[in-house]
């Protein structure tokens, strides 16, 4: 917040003391008035729903059965029961948790790695730089559902161009979205195509911010491209890498749209059912809002803990560098 201790005096502007600090009456009133809409929306879209969802998570509230009874920790117990057994991860919430973790890890590593690699190539003195950047960025801005329609066709086992290409090359066809071993991978490829451009933009901006004097000094010392990247550029990109990873965690744990469009029923054998799909189905198809609220809060805790760990690691690394 800005300090404005020395205000130019104005005739007739009254002052008031509150909590040991002095405020201009008019300025304070206008300030409070301007914040009212924000407060109103925060109350209705944040404060009340957060309190409600915590309350609901301790009930067996069900839209379909019409029940509303306090059941204590039962929802949490049921959702996490058998956490350390193999069967837990095969079905229900456990399966959706496993799918989400697998997807997030793959998406995070591949997306970050690919984006960084492509950004480094784009940062070189290549022709058509602007065109190339726009090309990578275009899928980011186009509507998700519309572009997934194209990919659903690509993945069609019978008339999809991907299988036709495989067939042409004499390779075995794949069932893509329609088999439990490839369904997750198929959506992952789509989401890489759709999303990689966003991080390319961020990394490219970071690379272009690196002062040429560092690069030239390293070159004069005889550094190779490889050394130049890992010893100079990569450490300097740390704040951006960290931002990309943090946003990646948050976004991949709450991903829903592409999975819901490409595999509306959670995929073959539930292989593409994620935590959000689980919550959505439980709450809005089966009406079991109490249990779904508990699942939503577990998801929140996971995202929160992961981002805290990430920012802790980042803070430590930054100190190490200095």
């Amino acid at each position: 917040m800005k300090k404005k201790d020395e205000h130019p005096e104005k005739a007739g502007s009254g002052k008031v003391r509150l909590f040991g600090k002095e405020y201009h009456t008019k300025e304070m009133l206008v300030g409070l008035l301007f914040i009212v809409p924000t407060v109103a929306f925060l109350i209705f879209t944040f404060v009340i729903p957060v309190i409600d969802v915590i309350e609901l998570s301790f009930t067996n509230f069900s839209m379909s059965a019409g029940t509303m009874k306090n059941v204590g920790m039962d929802n949490y117990k049921d959702l996490l029961e058998g956490f350390f057994t193999a069967e837990y991860w095969e079905d229900g919430f456990g399966q959706s948790l496993r799918n989400t973790v697998v997807y997030s890890l793959l998406k995070l590593t591949l997306d970050t790695g690919l984006a960084l690699f492509l950004a480094v190539q784009l940062d070189k003195n290549v022709p058509l730089k602007r065109f190339l950047r726009s090309t990578f960025f275009a899928p980011v801005v186009v509507p998700m559902v519309a572009s997934s329609l194209i990919w659903i066709w690509f993945y069609d086992p019978n008339v999809g161009p991907l299988n036709q290409i495989l067939q042409f090359l004499g390779l075995p066809a794949s069932k893509w979205l329609y088999h439990e071993s490839t369904s997750m991978l198929s959506i992952l490829i789509f989401s890489l195509w759709k999303g990689v451009g966003y991080n390319i933009i961020l990394f490219l901006a970071g690379l272009q911010n690196i002062s040429d004097s560092y690069v030239e000094a390293a070159r004069l010392d005889g550094a190779s491209d490889w050394q130049l990247f890992w010893k100079i550029k990569f450490p300097l990109l740390r704040p951006i890498t960290s931002f990309v990873i943090m946003m990646g965690i948050i976004n991949s744990f709450k991903v829903f749209a592409e999975f819901n469009v490409m595999t509306p029923d959670g995929g073959p054998l539930g292989s593409t059912k994620l935590i959000v799909s689980y919550i959505y189905e439980l709450a809005f198809t089966r009406g079991r809002m109490g249990r779904a609220s508990a699942a939503a809060l577990i998801l929140f805790v996971i995202i929160f803990v992961l981002t805290q760990i990430q920012s802790f690691i980042n803070a430590k690394k930054t100190i190490d560098v200095e």
């Binding site: 405020y23 304070m28 407060v39 729903p49 969802v53 709450k254 929140f300």
Partner: peptide, 29 residues
């Protein structure tokens, strides 16, 4: 940013924490 009134820091904190809570958490209530 440009006006002074009591509780500004608290307000900013509440707003910042609202960014940590995804829609999936609040959508049921």
């Amino acid at each position: 940013v440009h006006l002074r009134w009591p509780g500004q820091a608290f307000m900013a904190t509440v707003m910042r924490s609202s960014m940590f809570v995804p829609m999936v958490v609040t959508m049921i209530p």
